[in-house]
Design a protein around this nucleic acid. Structure first.
Length: 214
DNA sequence: ATCAAGCTCTAGGCAACCTG
DNA sequence: CAGGTTGCCTAGAGCTTGAT
């Protein structure tokens, strides 16, 4: 069973109802052990055409993703990007921090959306009336566009951080808990960019402090 | 406690493309 | 044309939180 291609079906229905400004929102970087969570909001002009090849950012190679991110920025009416820092993730928990990043992304749009389409489950804390669409980046064009923008922005951010902390290979693992990253964490300890509230980070820190790492 | 939702990683199979 | 490379796709694994 193939994954469906995102379409403009949902957006067209909203445009037909008279809501011209429809924003798609998605986030990247919820699972990794290090780095911020980044969200993006994208508004396309009403009755625009689909961007060929655009789909869930997870299913795209970095090169293709980068090309599509450029196309999205060219064709979109507005693009907003927001992030929540590691400190905010530790303070709020990853779910609330994700919602905070989404609110920031929506707040940075140059136009005020009349409808917001969000990937995932409904989140009342978002502060915007929205439709939550499970697997939205696979079904909905503007959410897929937001997922591509969020992912490319976060990847670039992690590459910058990697330059300051080369031991952890964040340029390739993007902060995720790969074997290499975990080994580096055990050897060098955590940085200010590690999520102290995440179990693997805490466990390794305790092991290092207790001399348990051999 | 379990399930469902999100994120990503790695590995492997297959197909298309490139190169000598 | 054969072999290597690249891209596409899936499956299974890990991480989280929230709802039931």
């Amino acid at each position: 069973m193939r994954r469906p291609r995102p379409s403009l079906e949902r957006e067209r229905a909203l445009w037909a109802e008279g809501g011209e400004v429809v924003a798609g929102v998605d986030e990247a970087g919820r699972g990794p052990l290090a780095g911020p969570v980044v969200a993006a909001a994208v508004v396309f002009p009403a009755y625009c055409k689909v961007i060929r090849g655009l789909r869930d950012s997870k299913l795209l190679t970095p090169r293709v993703r980068l090309r599509l991110a450029g196309l999205v920025r060219q064709r979109a009416l507005a693009v907003g990007v927001g992030a929540a820092s590691v400190r905010e993730i530790d303070r709020l928990n990853i779910r609330r921090a994700t919602i905070l990043a989404m609110r920031r992304a929506l707040g940075r749009l140059a136009v005020r959306p009349e409808h917001v389409l969000v990937d995932g489950l409904p989140c009342p804390e978002l502060g915007w009336t929205h439709d939550a669409i499970v697997d939205g980046d696979a079904h909905c064009h503007c959410i897929a566009a937001a997922s591509v923008i969020a992912k490319t922005v976060r990847d670039r951010l992690m590459q910058r951080l990697a330059a300051h902390h080369p031991a952890y290979a964040w340029a390739s693992n993007k902060g995720y808990g790969t074997a290499y990253h975990l080994a580096a964490l055990a050897e060098h300890g955590m940085t200010a960019h590690h999520r102290r509230s995440f179990a693997p980070v805490v466990q390794l820190e305790l092991a290092v402090r207790g001399g348990m790492w051999w």
